[in-house]
Every structure is written in C-alpha cells, then in structure tokens.
C-alpha cells in the first residue's frame, strides 16, 4: 500500500472516530492504534489479575462471614474483569500466551498501586474505597472509548465496580464507628493508601507521554490532572463523613475554584515503584509466575482429557 493510500485510510479512520463511531476488530486501523490499544488494554487486564493478590491476602482472615463473602465476591469480580479485558485485547491479534509472557517477563506493566502491601483488615476498606474509587474515575469515561470491544468491556466492569467501592467504604465506616483501636487502624490505612491512590491517576500531564494521541482516539477523555482533581474533590467529603484526616497538611478547600488544593506528590516514589522497586513488586511477580508455571500440568491434563473424550466419542460413532 502506498503512503498516499495509507494517509487516505488514516483520514477516513480519524473521521470515523470524530463522529463517535465504534472501531471493531476487523476494521482497518493504523498500526499505532492497534499497538496502543494492545498496550493499554493488556496492562489494564494485568492490573485486574495482579490486583486480586493484595485483597486475596485477607479472605481467610475476614472478621465475619458477611465480610468474607463480600471480599470473595469482589476478588472474583477482579478475575472476571481481567477476562473481559484479555478477551477484548485478543481481538486485536495477540494470544493470551503472548500477553502472559509480556507480564511475566516484565515487558508489560500493571497499575503500580498493587505493589503496596495490605497489612491490616482496614486496608481492605481503604483499598475498596480509594483504589476502586480512583479506578472508577478512570473507567467511566472509557465506556465511550472508540474501540468497540474495550468500550463494551468497560460498561460491564463499571456496573460491577460500584459494589466494590461501597464494600470498602462500608468497612471503613464500621471501623470508624467502632472502638478507638479500630478507628486508629482505619486512620493508619488511609495514611498509607492516600498518596499511592492519587498516583494511580497517572503522572502529571506534563510527564504523560501518551496523553495527546490517546485523547484523539478517545482512549482518554480527561487529562490525568483533571481526573486526579475529580478524585480528590469527591473523596475528601467522604473522609469527613468517616471522621478521618487526609494525610496532607496542604489540603485546603479553595473557594475560588470550588476545588481542593493539595500538597506535592512524591513522584520519585511513583517512578521507583513503576520501575520495579516498590515494596511488593517482586512478590506480585513471583505469585503470578508461580501460578502460571505450577498450573501447567492442570492445563495440559485438561487438554489431554478433552482429546481423549473426543477420540472416544468418534470411536463410538464409528
């Protein structure tokens, strides 16, 4: 195909997106669009699967049956979300094996938030309330993204995500209205999860390399800084209801802007964690790689069994 032909196709393509038409897997698309979507969707999927680990940690120690059942259901949902996203990603011409290889080798990233440890039961509250809260802010706009399978997956995910945040907030609320020890545990969890949750919305606009192209393709409708501000503005009143203090001495409501001014984010910490030096990076990777390697015999046995069943059926038919 000549450069001119490609340019023409690209113009038609961009016009379709501008008209809010959905791009489907078999449609012509620029190679860059395909690669960017594979990158973003796969990293989103990896995040869901790795995200099961910090919360899975507390299933066996949930304080009541209600809490255990809810947490189990949430973690199951995360597995499901990973599946929706892997499925959507695979429509772009990449196999699940390849996607796992990218994750296990470190070639593909996952959300840095999951490299932090969950050290108390209150962390389950903080994670549901803050981490899922930030995720929802990222995910709702994606329901209108240009790539059809991604948008449809996001609609499903968003429907399920709201229980996740409520579950977390309910845990925090119970603790904050309990004993002093429980209240302190909740405050401690907030202290540890607040700043990493802000970092979840991504680097500042100036440092974000993918933003411009992503906006054109409706992969992103608002900038990282705008989403971060939205998260802060909606969460601070929720902390007030809990009677907890956000660990930011510079946090202050600005009458003029109608928003909260907030303190400096420690971006060094963010980049360190992204580069693999967070508290749990190695642990998370080890868990995922082990699960894949130790599960190999199960996958092979299932296929051998399926093949035997098929052969038996054929033999009986003859």
């Amino acid at each position: 195909m000549s450069n001119e032909q490609i340019k023409n196709l690209e113009e038609i393509f961009e016009a379709r997106i501008a008209r809010d038409e959905k791009i489907e897997p078999k449609d012509w698309m620029p190679e860059k669009y395909r690669k960017t979507h594979i990158r973003q969707m796969s990293q989103h999927a990896h995040s869901e699967i790795v995200g099961m680990l910090p919360e899975g940690n507390w299933i066996s120690r949930a304080p009541s049956l209600r809490r255990k059942a809810a947490l189990l259901a949430k973690v199951q949902d995360e597995a499901g979300h990973g599946l929706y996203l892997y499925s959507a990603c695979e429509t772009l011409g990449i196999s699940r094996n390849e996607l796992y290889e990218q994750l296990h080798s470190g070639k593909a990233k996952y959300s840095s938030i999951f490299n932090y440890p969950t050290v108390t039961w209150a962390d389950m509250g903080a994670v549901g309330w803050l981490v899922d809260g930030a995720a929802i802010i990222n995910q709702v706009p994606l329901c209108n993204t240009s790539f059809g399978p991604y948008a449809r997956a996001m609609v499903r995910v968003c429907k399920e995500e709201s229980f996740h945040q409520r579950q977390g907030f309910e845990i925090m609320h119970k603790l904050c209205n309990g004993s002093q020890e429980q209240k302190d545990m909740a405050q401690d969890a907030l202290n540890r999860w607040w700043w990493p949750s802000l970092m979840m919305l991504g680097p500042t606009d100036a440092e974000s390399i993918h933003t411009e192209q992503s906006m054109k393709w409706k992969l992103k409708r608002k900038s990282n800084d705008d989403l971060r501000q939205q998260f802060i503005d909606q969460t601070v009143p929720q902390a007030d209801i809990l009677g907890l203090t956000i660990p930011d001495p510079d946090l202050k409501f600005n009458e003029e802007t109608g928003s909260y001014d907030f303190g400096e984010i420690n971006w060094d910490e963010f980049w360190q964690v992204v580069k693999g030096h967070g508290p749990c990076n190695k642990q998370r990777m080890k868990a995922r790689v082990s699960a894949w390697e130790n599960g190999e015999w199960v996958r092979d046995a299932a296929m051998a069994h399926a093949d035997k069943k098929e052969a038996r059926k054929l033999k009986e038919a003859i």
Binding site: D77, E90, A306
Partner: peptide, 23 residues
C-alpha cells in the same frame, strides 16, 4: 458477551456461567 479459553465445550459452558452470569 465476550470470549474465554476452555479445554472443551463443557468446560466452556461452566466457565461462561462463572464469569458472565454472576449476577
């Protein structure tokens, strides 16, 4: 609704039940 990997049709049905009909 989407796709999934399974070793045979029976597993595909059960997996589909697990991941696509939880509600």
């Amino acid at each position: 609704f989407g796709s999934l990997h399974a070793s045979d049709a029976e597993m595909a049905l059960e997996n589909a039940r697990d991941v696509y009909t939880r509600r």
